[in-house]
Design a protein around this nucleic acid. Sequence first.
DNA 1: GTTAGCACTCTCTGACGGAGAGTGCTAAAC
DNA 2: GTTTAGCACTCTCCGTCAGAGAGTGCTAAC
Lengths: 344, 344
Amino acid sequence: MDRLLSERQETILGLIIHEYIETGEPIGSHTLISRFHLGVSSATIRNEMAALTREGLLRQPHTSGGRAPTEDGYRYFVRGLLGETELPSDEKRLISHQFYQARSDVDEWIRLAASVLAHQSQAAALVTAPHAARAVFKHLELIVTQGRQVLLVLVLQGGEVRQQVLSLAEPVDQAQLSQLAERITAAVLGLDAFGVAAIGPAFDTLGQEVIRLVSETLSRADAVASGEIYRDGLANVLDHPDFVRPDAARHALRLLDERSLLEEVLAQVLSPGVGSVQVVIGGEGAWEELRDCSMVLARYGAAGFATGALGVLGPTRMAYGRTISAVRYVSGLMSELVVESFAG
Amino acid sequence: MDRLLSERQETILGLIIHEYIETGEPIGSHTLISRFHLGVSSATIRNEMAALTREGLLRQPHTSGGRAPTEDGYRYFVRGLLGETELPSDEKRLISHQFYQARSDVDEWIRLAASVLAHQSQAAALVTAPHAARAVFKHLELIVTQGRQVLLVLVLQGGEVRQQVLSLAEPVDQAQLSQLAERITAAVLGLDAFGVAAIGPAFDTLGQEVIRLVSETLSRADAVASGEIYRDGLANVLDHPDFVRPDAARHALRLLDERSLLEEVLAQVLSPGVGSVQVVIGGEGAWEELRDCSMVLARYGAAGFATGALGVLGPTRMAYGRTISAVRYVSGLMSELVVESFAG
DNA sequence: GTTAGCACTCTCTGACGGAGAGTGCTAAAC
DNA sequence: GTTTAGCACTCTCCGTCAGAGAGTGCTAAC
């Protein structure tokens, strides 16, 4: 498909998409020449439009009423955009300053990233916390709460934290538990889920129970988006005129609402690794729920150490240039923060 | 206002609200007598309706077209409902079983609570993590990441965890830091933000820096809803016919989206303490963003130890009976879990 | 290859009118 | 005094219809 288009056709496709993204209304040949000096007549434009429609890049919602881009049209357009766009440098400065101020609180980065993305793209943003590809034990804390209930706080290498509650067969006092936690910490420091499990037999019943739970927790922490997914700008979705149709908005929100769906999309789209921005337009045939929506996603962090995902969900008719730049820039900043803070 | 209504007027108000919640359409006098055997004629009903309208409990959207409840009408109705409703016992069993299965993972409870509430009420649910009224130090972990970056993991009494990043003036090695963390932990165990700050002078420059940060973090953890706010069922909001009007839905989502707003509402509404369910109908004049919306809220946990908030946000035209029961029941279950796990 | 002209198609909007639902009021009945 | 039947009136909703506006494809000339 790549070089079927003449330069003029590309120009026309670009202008139509540009106008359509702005106005939301199909563009006719007259409108186009009245808004841009193309040096040709409307009839010529009509011929080219007919060709683009044959190629499947434009569609005609009604016999009259102009052309709008198809999903393939957007894809063609976006491919030419991926490498080139950048945020204005004053905005970059502002954002980078905000991140600088938030640098000391881990949760705060993530919230900030979501907030900045939502604001820049005027769409819904989502960010997962960075986490290691392989969860490795760092420290264990056992806290007696009530009688036989014990709270288990597990710190992973890199600083991620998991909590579990353990019900014991009989009451144990705090001193005894603290000692056990220390012994386990010393024994399994630096091990992963398998390593921890293997150590079990060296301990008594209680110790084995705790170790089993720790190992389970570690292996669960290996999942792609095991932590919380931060979201922001959900209301932006409704502000967009394309989402006045309630079921379109519903699709979008349903996607943002259902963890499992989100995890699936993130896992699949972000295999390429840190750095590149991915654009998913209209579900790409794979996700019914993404119909009418596009996502601009990136993986951030330090490959091999800790990575997370971040991105934007908006209508297919989205300001891709701006959004792609924002996602790329924020993902870059987040990567720096991760490298500074975790990848030691 | 309390006893201005005759018994018959209360019956009529109740029936109108009941029908209106079901159908979403204003109810006329004929409709009412055709659906219920009231033993009086439509003209009588009309007279009573006119009286209820004068009292401000009903309104007439158009000169023709029947009556709908006003916000005051809902309030009158809900007040008579607050104490009495209960979830069917088979549903209770089901829910309680789900909580039993999730009892070992703290985050899981909260997600489950949000999910159950969203499902039961067919509206948006929100749940904050339980946390102590006063944050008390339990354990400190210092993790070197890259050169001069240090990740500080703070475990509070009760098991809450906070993370901070600290930038040092010069590199320090892990062994040295671990030792410092141990010394600090021993020195400030069981103290609150003030207590920790007072210990500072006993340490060297690095120690003082860490202690300052710990104290700051502790005092920040004292805030009402300092942790993450879990949400679920956002898409339910759009499914409700009352929210087809995009700006109504926007109000609701905006509220769910903006932490600060949510925190304000939660803080103000939930001062009564654990146990009682609060219903906020249509903003009560105080919150513009809550217009068209109602919230059913409760505080859960063990007063004095750890508490959290949970509730539902939906349209004013909401199935209050069911929602109130669901919120009360889930809040009760959550309280039990908190007592078991934290209040030791 | 490009352009002017033309007949055709489709959507959008506002006007119109009838059906349906509900009201308030009045006068009579209980 | 309360309740009821009857009636005139009001307002929304819905389908129909016609005109305006925008855009298209096609043909023939440049």
